[in-house]
Amino acid sequence: MEHEDYYEILGVPRDAPEGEIRKAFRRLARKHHPDVNPGNQEAEDRFKRINEANEVLSDPEKRRKYDEFGPRWREHEEWQRAQEAAGTPGQPFDWSRFGGAQGPGGTHYEYRTVREEDLQDLFGDEEPFSDLFTNLFGSRGERGGARRATRPAAGRDVESPVEVTLQEAYAGATRLLEMQLPDGQTRRLEVRIPPGVDEGSRVRVAGQGSPGKAGGPPGDLYLVVSVLPDPRYERRGDDLHTRVTASLQTLLLGGEVQVPTPDGRRLALAIPAGTQDGRVFRLRRQGMPRAGRPEQRGDLFAEVHARLPERLSPRERELLEEFALAGTED
């Protein structure tokens, strides 16, 4: 197995004081303890590595040797012991006696990982992977496999993708989910998607994950949001960009256009006389809401374009020709 640096495992610098190592170990051990992650082999393996790192780094003597000899510190320790037993201490350490490697960093040496008493210190009880609370509140009077098999364990969290339209992301939505239960029955569940969700937002639905074991609480359901594109709007962060059209007269003489919002409202936008085609107007705080940040709602940008008449009446043509002749520009 590839050796993983003990300091990296515990996430502490090489000069970390003892207290910091202890704190890091306790934090990681709680997080990766098999009782907290039932059935998660990866967490269990991680937990073992954390224990191994702590076993070495929390002991000043072992830590000193680890710092000096790296992952093969224990081989050096055994060599020293053998030298002392043979009555020839002080001999230079012969790496070749241990697996043929030529020094620290060569072939890795595997040794035991979890020491039972370490776990008892932390979590109590005779069983290494015991319940966190047993040492605080006493044994449950059962032992061995039967006890372990009946211990309540929380169900696993489940993820489910959910697609929402931009309109739904803007105003919020509800979704009716159909869930297949282990007994074959179907359960319907209405969940609320709050306004302001974005691509990748995760909405937790408490208690709707996998059922717990032996009476343990169920896991949670996480809805992973994907926002569908809307041809009318381009989303840039919290801002929305859209295009609206105005008559030539409105752009020339001034007036008003309606700007639709994703939730179906129509906002009146005043167009000043002499507005150029393609001018962008900002409608403050009419863009995407941000969940939990009401004061930071985005803006809605409306790009105004001229809508030219396709057919002119004789009178319109006459007036436009007159306008062209009187041309004040160019």
Partner: peptide, 20 residues
């Protein structure tokens, strides 16, 4: 971080809490 409270929602800006 310790899982004592599981946010009701998480987005690119971080966790959000609901009434529960």
């Amino acid at each position: 971080e310790e899982g004592l409270v599981r946010p009701a929602m998480t987005d690119s800006d971080g966790p959000l809490m609901g009434p529960v």
